[in-house]
Design a protein around this nucleic acid. Structure first.
Lengths: 204, 204
DNA sequence: TCGTATCGCTACGATACCGTATCGTATTGG
DNA sequence: CCAATACGATACGGTATCGTAGCGATACGA
């Protein structure tokens, strides 16, 4: 009930250096395996082998493989820098270019399909996916909100629609048609999204 | 070497009714399992249990689990009806609405993420994915080609770009933001794609 | 320095899967 | 009707996986 009294309480806040080493090593290796083989390519035995941390130790820190996976996925949030160029067009272009770059070189685009697949059935993963999606949409909402204050777009403009109009075509190229996302494509997609935002006929 | 001579040759063309029954049952069950659990949710033992076809028989028809999976995936091609309303806008709207409907109720959208995931690493699945993608893009190319003949769009318009601009936002909603794809969204997305097609500044 | 928390190692048990082997039975087509 | 073919049932060997148990070694922190 009360804070503490007798036992020093392992103190979740300040971990012993040893447990931190173990935990970090395991999480890093897990993420690495995820990058290589998706969620399905991660096994506890392999994590143990590659990280040098004993399997028993892994199970001392996480109750199950799923828990470990969810924990490791928390590292996925990219925390993108939200551009602030002073204009809606500048912000959107900068952010779109950033996403396009990430899709080409970052590691999370390799993992995401397996998360989407798992989310299709596993509700736990679905929750994780929703969190990732929210973080992904956040920059758009900031950018649109600023544009509203500047009077560049009507108040009814919806950030998520812009996200769909910009990221949608990018994702399509990355995972479906597998075409490269060149600069021209980024520009024209953003151009289209801007028109949608400023159009009289509201989006949705 | 020559066509045939002595043995009646099992005659791949005209299968014995028994083998057809077995093959069909197995393929149907495989597809069913894929719909429920994605590619990863398919095991030969489970197919055998659920279809009533002995595992030995399954291995008499397919050399491996992968071969069976690829065979079953051939059923995925949706062969969508290509609309011909007489105008580019009508065709695109009709086709977009069809895709939107499929995304909501058909079974392949449940399976596709697992294919995408597998294609990220397995070259065999990657080939299958490319075929599916080609079939998916085909209606767009027919529609755009007709519009070119009518002079509705410049000759440099690219069908795959239109596919990205239309299907991209749909896919985004289906698998990322998980919002429903209502009729308004379909209309506005198609509107945007039309603007892109007719814009002076070329797409890509 | 010394007790305790944490660790590594090895070995389990249980399950699920792939693919093969054997052998007796049922269907098919001539 | 009869031989060839396909089939079902069962069992197997091999591997990979998840999680747990026991036990001795080690690093930390007071």
């Amino acid at each position: 009930m009360s804070k503490s009294r007798k036992k020093p309480e392992p103190n979740v806040e300040k971990e012993s250096p040893r447990v931190k080493r173990s935990r970090d090593a395991v999480l890093a290796t897990t993420f690495e395996l995820m990058s290589e083989g998706g969620i399905g390519g991660v096994s506890v035995d392999e994590i143990s082998r590659r990280s040098g941390v004993a399997k028993t130790t892994i199970y001392r820190h996480w109750p199950s493989r799923s828990a470990l996976l969810l924990d490791a996925c928390a590292k996925l949030r990219p925390q993108p820098p939200i551009p602030d160029t002073g204009s809606l067009e500048g912000d959107l272009l900068a952010h779109a270019a950033f996403i396009a770059r990430q899709l080409k070189s970052a590691r999370w685009p390799t993992i995401l399909p397996s998360i989407i697949d798992a989310a299709e059935r596993d509700p736990e993963i679905a929750k994780l996916h929703a969190q990732l999606q929210a973080g992904f949409a956040y920059p758009y909402s900031v950018i649109i909100e600023r544009a509203k204050k500047r009077g560049e777009v009507p108040a009814r403009a919806r950030a998520l629609d812009t996200a769909a109009l910009v990221s949608g075509p990018f994702f399509f190229r990355r995972w479906y048609s597998r075409e490269p996302i060149d600069e021209m494509f980024v520009k024209s997609v953003v151009e289209r999204a801007l028109e949608a935002l400023k159009a009289r006929s509201t989006l949705t």
